[in-house]
């Protein structure tokens, strides 16, 4: 465990918990894409299949349980909570799941480290995580504004991505045989998507106006 990895995990954790706590407190999920949240729940469910078979550390197991619990809780709030679900704008959250999920299944089946069920699911979760933010970015683009909730959320997720890349660079130079092409490339693609968002986020902040993403 290095400082980049720990800081990356903590910002990732903060992003999910901040979102969950805010939805719980303000009883609103306005501006949040349910589709992105459901995709993240699928990401964690397919990646952590090893939770009961491979013990890595107490830290690892607890973090996995928190990510699973919080991501499914967020989906439950948006879908089922009697007040929160009213603030969900279904008509704006239009991104089609198939355009994201099918290419990821296809890619995971042909590009993986080992053709076993667990390994393909793990690879699928990496590809899916890389693009799961797309419905959220499309929603931002459609509503053309970003409030504190979505802003902080996407900011924390972006910080997590950047820190993980620093973690990989650090591990590459300090650990023997530490080479993982699939998570690295998927992770870089994911970070680039956030980078695009950050550019507009920074631009709107600098000009002190509401975020306007290009059409």
């Amino acid at each position: 465990m290095n400082i980049f990895r720990l800081a990356g995990d903590m910002t990732h954790l903060a992003s999910v918990l901040v979102l969950l706590l805010k939805i719980h407190t303000i009883k609103s999920c306005a501006g949040i894409s349910l589709k992105t949240q459901e995709l993240y729940a699928i990401v964690f469910a397919t990646r952590y299949l090893d939770i009961f078979t491979d013990f890595i550390s107490l830290y690892n197991t607890i973090m996995k349980l928190i990510f699973l619990g919080s991501s499914f809780s967020i989906v439950w709030y948006i879908r089922q909570h009697k007040i929160v679900r009213r603030s969900y704008d279904k008509d704006q959250d239009t991104f089609r799941y198939v355009f994201i999920v099918l290419p990821c299944i296809f890619l995971a089946l042909i590009i993986n480290e080992k053709f076993t069920f667990k390994e393909v699911m793990w690879t699928f979760s990496l590809y899916l995580e890389a693009v799961a933010i797309l419905p959220q970015l499309v929603l931002l683009q459609r509503t053309r504004n970003i409030d504190n909730l979505t802003g902080q959320y996407v900011f924390l997720l972006g910080a997590y991505r950047a820190l993980y890349i620093l973690n990989w660079i650090y591990r590459y130079f300090t650990e023997p045989h530490y080479i993982h092409w699939i998570p690295w490339i998927a992770g870089i693609v994911q970070t680039l998507l956030y980078g695009d968002f950050f550019y507009y986020y920074f631009h709107s902040w600098k000009n002190n106006k509401k975020l306007q993403l290009p059409a």
């Binding site: 990895r5 995990d9 990732h12 090893d50 491979d54 890595i56 550390s57 690892n60 973090m63 996995k64 990510f67 480290e113 080992k114 793990w122 993980y164 973690n167 045989h177 530490y178 993982h180 998570p183």
Partner: peptide, 10 residues
């Protein structure tokens, strides 16, 4: 060798 690298990241 690859099998021995644990998936310790989240």
């Amino acid at each position: 060798e690859k099998d021995n690298v644990p998936k310790d990241e989240l």
